[in-house]
Amino acid sequence: MMKTAAFVLAVANLAAAHTTFQSFVIGGKDQGQHFAVQTPSNGNNPIKDVTSPLMVCNGGKATADQVEVAAGSSIGFQWHHNDPATVSGDSDEPIAASHKGPIMVYIAKADTKGEGAVWTKIFEDGLSGGKWAVDTFIANKGLITVDLPNLEAGDYLIRPEMIGLHEANNAGGAQFYNGCGQIKVTGSGSASLPASGVDMTKAYSATDKGVLFNIYNGATTYEIPGPKVWDGASSGSAPAPSTPTKTAAPVAPAASKTATPTTITSPKPATPTATEAAPVPAPSSGSGSGSTLPESFTIEQFISWLKTTAGSSASKARRHARAFNL
């Protein structure tokens, strides 16, 4: 009987060991309980129906407050077991250690009111080296800190979430905890959220690998459910490129210029000068009349000598004369 009572008490403690998002932490300073945070209508109770409207902002209502945070900077979400927080003496602060599971953060434009396919995942942490994201969350006393993408300035809803998998070995046993806060992003960021996001009432199914999961079978790997982290947030504050960067086509090496072959024209034989005349019979000594030429002679004497010695016509003589370029 005592064992049964102890078991019932343990189950009751598990059921009550819940948590809620209660305040922002900016620059290491807590912004105050519920300031710019939509107080959940669901209290610290978990959501088990993944299609419930509570999956959007846990039933919270919009407030007139906002916290300002610069694009690309860190933002913190402070959670507590009870609301208001009763840290002293609460062994389940900020959540019971049994509630192991992943943590995710989503963001949407404020004017959407979180309704429909408007949410973009900017952070997730699951199981790594045997340590769950919730283990880190407990070690950090209920504080989740992430880096915002380099978002364009404007008003946004931001939604941290965690899943308790301690009863998730049965369909419908996973416990979802979420909350929404209102932020004004400042600065000169340029990244726009994707035009199409996810509807939080359709983001998960009860049979997803990361929702229907047994944490007691010594698992070393875990598939985080829901959409992938937006590529504009995957490297911290780096924005997603609006269009894929085109890789320039390889530039072919410049073709080496081959010199145009130079046509070498054989030089024309130089026209003989008077001193380079075609060989002529060696003149015999004489007075320059008849068949002999004097040692010094004129062109007329040479032509006359040709006529006499070679019997050539006057035209042939002239051609020989032209060889002298005269």
Rank of each mutant, 00 (worst) to 15 (best):
H81S: 11
T86K: 14
A248W: 00
G197N: 01
R319K: 13
N170W: 04
P250Q: 06
T260D: 11
T136Q: 13
I75G: 00
A174G: 07
G89K: 06
V11R: 13
T258P: 10
A314E: 14
Y156D: 05
A16G: 15
T112F: 01
A64M: 09
T260G: 07
E161K: 04
R159A: 04
R319Y: 08
V8Q: 13
P244N: 09
A252V: 15
P281C: 07
V134P: 02
N150G: 10
R159C: 08
N150M: 12
N170C: 04
E276S: 14
G164T: 06
V118K: 02
K109H: 10
T51P: 00
H34W: 15
P272A: 10
V229A: 04
V11P: 00
W230Q: 04
T309G: 03
T19V: 14
P149N: 07
H80P: 00
S284N: 13
A133Q: 00
S313M: 09
V87H: 05
Q66E: 10
Q78I: 05
T292E: 13
Q301G: 05
A108H: 01
W230D: 08
F123H: 07
H18L: 07
F24E: 00
N325G: 12
S237G: 13
N58H: 09
P267D: 13
F7D: 11
S196E: 12
I299M: 14
K61W: 01
P53Y: 02
S312P: 00
P294L: 10
N170K: 14
N58S: 12
K141H: 11
G116Q: 03
G181S: 06
L165Q: 00
L9W: 05
T112I: 06
R322I: 11
Q182F: 05
A12Y: 12
D30E: 09
I122H: 00
T309E: 08
G32H: 03
I122K: 00
D199V: 10
A274R: 13
V56H: 02
H81E: 08
G101N: 01
Y222M: 10
